[in-house]
Design a protein around this nucleic acid. Structure first.
Lengths: 243, 243
DNA sequence: CGCACCTTTGACTGGCCTCAAGAGACGTGG
DNA sequence: CCACGTCTCTTGAGGCCAGTCAAAGGTGCG
């Protein structure tokens, strides 16, 4: 389940300037270092379950994790896709509200909950950053609602690809080869994509095949997707291009 | 569009202890009073549009407002249902991201944005409360995602009714007549409900008729809905009853 | 009364789900 | 090296739920 527990300096941290600690001064970082530890989880393994007691909150350092809800008859809906710098957990709450799963190999920077909450109360830089990040997540959730409620299967797939492409560009992954094209690493199985989009895995597979057939995407293996022309993909999302 | 602009004391405010100002001390309230003003909007009228310049942020004092997104081909998805004490606007952002509409007659307590942001930076009580409220909204958004992505039309309707019932109970409206029954005032047209749930208004109408036919709800007029047995309604939501 | 708006109901269509089978990738062990 | 099992993904056939199109009923207001 958990693989390693190491400690590492914040100085060389890849998410130093995007995570919850982004606005901290060096003395505040030092205090954070005292309550933090690293954990890694293997792809496909659970990180924690809904209802679990939360002894920590954490930042995603590397990899991707998912938040999801499951109804008792098995229907599952993903409600969060956590990429590097995203925050796991809710200060002030002792139990996890969703299932958290490692979609790919994940490295977490964990903070013990109690001392973190104490710091949150005394360090405005952390609270301010957390508020900003939460507002961003709320915006993302609302964009997601439009996808779930109103978009067709094809538009859903295109929207997911463009969202991941946008995030990977922001983090500096997704090496852009040519001018307008790029390749993204999609850390999700077909089933996880279906859970994200409110579809079945068969429909996901069919739509990806269709996009491939039409040359809008090119598959390299199952999980690496080349987008030769980002504008062409965007035209499939149903979002206004105003072109 | 805007009907009245009056000022009113915080002391007698019905949302004093639930809104963004909930944790403020009396001196902080006095400062808030200086930058606040009331506005009312008639049912059905827009409060502002996506892209509008935001000169204020606000709390909903009375009535209900909706946040919604519209695609250029007209498909609309509601992404927020704002009831008394909910917050409108995002500190640090100058334009509104969504269309805001008065679902019923709405009274807003508006704060001029610039001075509010200044207070936010200097008054921890406000930022803390806003973080908590934003986290609550994020949870609500995620519950909503499950509804949009995985529930059937009937389950969606039942879920909406139970959500509104829960909120009205929390605020202290929704006079409970008997033991387990209650009556709720649904401030939404069929079309607004459809936009909330990712359905068409025809499907909403059909499902409400079905619930009425089966005695799970009783209509008094179009907008007032009696729920004789809350447990019976809950059983229609698809959520675990573990009964 | 006449009009506007919201709602209800019906008939039909279609997109996605369900059920099912098979293909491809990968690791294990004989 | 290949048989075998497992896991993921693909593809096909058919059915159903919700969408679409259409018309009529209700309610409130000038």
């Amino acid at each position: 389940m958990m693989d390693t527990t190491v400690r590492q300096s914040c100085d060389s941290c890849p998410i130093r300037h995007r995570a919850v600690c982004a606005r901290c001064e060096s003395d505040e970082l030092q205090e954070l270092e005292r309550i933090k530890y690293y954990r890694t989880h293997e792809a496909g393994h659970p990180i924690c379950w809904a209802g679990d007691d939360m002894t920590f909150v954490a930042s995603v350092v590397k990899g991707a994790a998912t938040l999801s809800q499951t109804m008792e008859d098995g229907r599952t809906q993903m409600v969060g896709l956590l990429l590097p710098s995203d925050f796991i957990g809710r200060p002030g709450r002792t139990t996890m509200a969703y299932d958290v799963t490692a979609a790919s190999d994940v490295t977490l920077c964990c903070f013990r909950r109690k001392p973190f909450e104490k710091m949150l109360a005394t360090t405005p830089h952390i609270g301010e950053r957390l508020l900003d990040m939460t507002l961003d997540e709320l915006d993302a959730a609302r964009e997601w609602m439009l996808i779930l409620g109103r978009k067709t299967a094809r538009e859903k797939i295109a929207s997911l690809l463009s969202i991941v492409a946008r995030r990977e560009l922001a983090i500096g992954m997704g090496f852009t080869g040519a001018s307008k094209g790029m390749t993204i690493d999609l850390p999700l199985t077909r089933e996880a994509m279906a859970d994200y989009l409110g579809l079945t895995l068969e429909t996901v597979s069919r739509q990806i095949s269709a996009l491939k057939r039409e040359g809008i995407i090119v598959l390299h293996g199952k999980r690496q997707i080349e987008i030769p022309d980002m504008a062409a993909l965007m035209r499939q999302t149903g979002d206004e291009v105003t072109a």
